[in-house]
């Protein structure tokens, strides 16, 4: 029974492009692809977030991923097959340069958030400053590979379904990574690192190395998410891909869905993108800024009234119901 649900879900996801979705079929597919791409990024963020490493700089990894592949292709015709490993390497380098000293010198809490915020700003400003290459704040468009609808070398496809399956695959891979990290640690060790480093170190967990490992994994996944975004959307600009705004959006999605469960980041991303898309369509170009205004208000209200996220909030409701004695096991707190 327990294994049936994920299997059914997977089949629905695989079959999605062929389901009768009506006239809005292509738009729905587009939104789902966006959700999958951003879910990869959200899942990547939660790898760190659940250990108390609140990063406000994931825009940096995202931007490095997207810009590296797009610029390599635009200027030298380097295909994303080679560009992606380079982009990941660049993101990992960045993560290492920032992460190692951070963990070595125990930069935690607000301070970690502000250091990563500074990193995000550095990348955003570099993108703007190098405008001869990146187009500055005006953005850059991925050069069309031409030559037919499907170009395997350039990873450009006119058919959305191909992108859909690539995004689906990367998303599943992200979930596997998340699960692997989750399984490779005992629950008590997870809690120990999140709450008290000294205690964690005293029970024999190499805190610095572990944090570095999840940071590198997180940067890798985020950079891959950035590559996907670049290849799919084909237009990059520093406002959308780097800096504090995008970082806050990622964090919001994860917190909304819950960062302590496998599907939490995905659920949160789906909800926030659905909300943003709905607002965008509802207001169109009529009331400029109104969609974002409501988005900001919704964010504040959700944080105040659903502090444990949607998943946590629902679980609290569930817990509030009277339960039979047999089920009254001590509640397990999330790490």
């Amino acid at each position: 029974m327990k294994r049936a649900l994920p299997l059914v879900g997977l089949h629905v996801l695989v079959a999605l492009p062929w389901l009768p979705l009506g006239p809005a079929r292509l738009y729905i597919l587009h939104v789902v692809i966006l959700i999958l791409i951003w879910s990869v990024v959200g899942t990547a963020w939660s790898l760190m977030g659940r250990f108390g490493l609140v990063s406000l700089g994931h825009g940096a990894f995202l931007g490095v991923g997207a810009y590296t592949t797009v610029l390599l292709w635009n200027f030298w015709g380097v295909p994303p097959w080679i560009g992606t490993p380079l982009a990941v390497a660049a993101a990992c380098f960045l993560a290492l340069v920032l992460g190692y000293p951070c963990f070595r010198f125990r930069v935690v809490g607000h301070y970690f958030a502000l250091v990563t915020l500074a990193l995000g700003e550095v990348i955003r400003l570099l993108i703007i400053a190098e405008r001869d290459w990146t187009g500055g704040s005006l953005g850059v468009t991925l050069k069309d590979a031409g030559a037919g609808a499907v170009n395997l070398v350039a990873l450009q496809f006119a058919d959305r379904r191909v992108f859909y399956f690539i995004a689906l695959g990367v998303w599943l891979a992200g979930l596997l990574v998340w699960r692997w990290v989750d399984r490779s640690m005992t629950r008590s060790a997870l809690e120990a690192i999140g709450e008290d480093e000294t205690a964690a170190a005293s029970v024999g967990i190499p805190v610095t190395r572990f944090k570095l490992k999840i940071t590198l994994l997180s940067a890798t996944l985020t950079a891959v998410g950035g590559v996907l975004y670049g290849q799919y959307v084909t237009y990059l600009d520093p406002g959308t891909l780097a800096g504090i705004g995008v970082s806050l959006r990622i964090v919001f999605a994860v917190v909304l869905g819950g960062m302590y469960t496998l599907l939490g980041p995905t659920v949160g991303t789906a909800l926030t993108i659905a909300l943003a898309e709905y607002l965008r369509v509802a207001f169109g170009v009529r009331f400029l800024g109104m969609a974002e205004t409501i988005y900001g208000l919704a964010l504040i209200l959700i944080i105040i009234f659903l502090p444990a996220g949607l998943y946590g909030g629902l679980r609290e409701l569930w817990r509030a119901r009277p339960r039979p004695l047999a089920a009254a096991t001590p509640p397990v707190r999330p790490a």
Partner: peptide
Amino acid sequence: LLATGGLLFFLQAFATF
């Protein structure tokens, strides 16, 4: 951080509006 981040979105967007 998120709550004040929401305020950031709100203020910027509302001013735009």
